[in-house]
Design a protein around this nucleic acid. Structure first.
Lengths: 223, 223
DNA sequence: GTATGTTTCAAACAATTGTTTGGTTGGTTG
DNA sequence: CAACCAACCAAACAATTGTTTGAAACATAC
């Protein structure tokens, strides 16, 4: 059996084209042309363009979440009976971010950009698919973050998690372009690993900032 | 003369539809339908869909940059001869972010989402337009940030600015959804003003975090 | 009134989209 | 061999896209 090579060729091409052009700006003819397969192959193997989009996400998100959950397991085992520290949780995440694309020989930027597109371009079907498929891992991540920052009120924590996600998604999704700019302007070479090395202390410092006291109803009600 | 009302109706509809659906997912028929004008009106008044997109950006970005530059002027005058502080620069920015949409009676989320789309969806023409039109204000913002954080190496500062932009863009562009989630989950009501009140200390703390020392060639070479 | 110029409109245009069709290939099984 | 089935392919499909057309409606001037 072993899924014909055509399937992988289509997924490879779609992955790349989607990430740099978006979903609806990428036609099936571009994908099949880039992949060197017949136009009808997409509908034959995947059924529809929507299913192809979901398949692209599933191919990298499933192993990503597995790797991440394994990291969480290790983390909780080593920290027990205490809950893992904030730095530990962030390290587990970034370790996965750095390690995963290496295996697939693809820039993390591609996946981050795809992840970003999922939230800005999806007409619903993709968001529903992701929520249904990967909410478990995401929920666990949120729970770990909560236990690692007991000093924060629920509201403060909620917002700061959003701030962290924003920094990470934005930076990593444009990491190629930003790396190039850095090289052109300052003559400094860098890579994804160094970016996250910069990112983690920035995020950790933000998370540890003194909570806002002036807020109208943001009193400490950690629940 | 006074540009016919049709132009404004089109811009209003386009602004809203673009921000929630993206550019290429929004057809001219949707826009003209929502605006209650004839399909041909877009090409008559704007020439093309591309020009319409640019016009949407120009309408809110031009007064935004004016307001921001005025804030920078005030800031520099008050701090002289010292360069303005980091908090001051960030406050000037957020003050504009909070104040501008109020005048137009529109959520800041719309403009932030548009701004985000400009970087993920544009096929070039929009990015070129924005760069050519508004690089002055952006450059000044970057220069102020540099003078406000002399303790950071050029590389550290570069990355941390990206981190800040990411947090801000991501959070504010989904501010409506995030506000709703916060209400559903924790029963807390909020608004844009409170979000930026949370955001600024988070960003400032991140910027002030001790510089990374382990980096390969990220030594202090502030230039 | 006529004349002039701008704005609106229904209709058609050519191009591109995702999808389907019907037939051909190539290999495996009986 | 024939029978079968998954895979592939060129061609056509209907729908939607941005854009153009040419005439109608409107206002303002003389």
């Amino acid at each position: 059996m072993a899924q014909s090579e055509t399937v992988d060729r289509i997924l490879d091409a779609a992955e790349e084209l989607f990430s740099e052009r978006g979903f609806s700006e990428t036609s099936l003819r571009m994908i099949t042309g880039e992949a060197g397969v017949n136009l009808a192959a997409v509908n034959y193997h995947f059924g529809s363009k929507k299913s192809l989009i979901q398949a692209v996400f599933a191919r990298f998100l499933t192993p990503f979440c597995q790797h991440l959950e394994a990291g969480f397991d290790r983390l909780e085992r080593e920290a027990a009976p205490e809950p893992p520290s904030l730095d530990g949780v962030l390290q587990a995440l970034t370790e996965t971010v750095v390690e995963m694309p290496r295996q697939h020989d693809r820039s993390i930027a591609i996946y981050m950009r795809l992840q970003g597109l999922a939230y800005t371009q999806s007409q619903g079907h993709l968001r529903r698919f992701l929520e249904q498929e990967y909410s478990h891992t995401f929920g666990r991540f949120m729970r770990l973050l909560k236990d690692a920052t007991p000093e924060l009120s629920a509201v403060d924590r909620y917002w700061r998690i959003q701030f962290m996600l924003g920094s990470t998604a934005f930076t990593l999704s444009s990491s190629d372009a930003l790396t190039e700019i850095l090289w052109n302007k300052l003559g400094v070479e860098t890579n994804v690993e160094e970016i996250v090395d910069q990112l983690v202390p920035f995020l950790a410092a933000g998370m540890r900032a003194p909570p806002v006291v002036g807020g109208s109803d943001t009193r400490n009600e950690s629940a």
